[in-house]
Write a protein that binds this DNA or RNA. Structure first.
Lengths: 115, 115
DNA sequence: TTATATATTTAAGAAAATTATATATATAAG
DNA sequence: CTTATATATATAATTTTCTTAAATATATAA
């Protein structure tokens, strides 16, 4: 894989999912975690990840707090209560979509006619 | 669902999958079949579907034959041998992606510590 | 001092999908 | 007979989303 052709549309939900299980995370950390959970198969690009974080913040689903760690600014993101609700919805939604997709991709039942 | 937020990136593979199991299909039919297989959850838009068919044809993965049925032109698409190979690859690839995504979305193992 | 890892930001461009519109026939409902 | 719905394809305009690229900055290992 690694071409990430299919990741489109799922990044936002992945981000919300990780934040729903961690009080706070920063962008770089989110990417590392995704890489880890996907056994290296999924690697987000920062050009996609950060704009999504900004958008979620602008929608009041996330809040930020900047901390200085090792002399560098690190920007932590946390879900707002509203963000948590949306996260739960979106995670369930994507789970259902994945099942639906599996059904569509399942091999068609063989007709069983011999010639 | 029905908002189809997650379908992005998967349409081409879905089309190839259906064509790999049917000698010939036309655009409208493909959409109906997807709707059927997904229990109404996935409904492609024709603005997305037809351009994908044209692109696959321009890449020599599909060939077309127009027939007149009930006084209307109907355009059938079939996989070329090369299209069939690509279809097999892409279906497997999307299957793997779906599994990877499930792993990423799986609930984090509880830490099991009580307070 | 050079490379690699950490960490964020943002602009330009490409790719992909949505929405809208147009065309045309068949058939069922009224 | 006229209207609505289903069938069927085509395509342009717009929007959304992602990739690619470039910039900035620090820490650490080689």
């Amino acid at each position: 894989m690694k071409s990430n052709e299919y990741i489109k549309g799922t990044i936002k939900t992945i981000v919300l999912k990780l934040l729903s299980e961690n009080k706070k995370m920063y962008g770089y950390e989110i990417n590392q975690r995704v890489k880890e959970l996907s056994a290296g198969e999924i690697e987000l690009t920062y050009g996609a990840l950060y704009p999504i974080l900004y958008k979620l913040e602008s929608e009041s689903l996330l809040t930020t707090q900047s901390e200085i760690v090792d002399g560098r600014v690190r920007k932590y993101y946390s879900l707002t209560p509203q963000g948590n609700e949306i996260a739960i919805e979106k995670i369930a939604e994507l789970g259902r979509f994945v099942d639906t997709l599996k059904a569509v991709l399942a091999p068609a039942p063989s007709t069983n006619f011999s010639l």
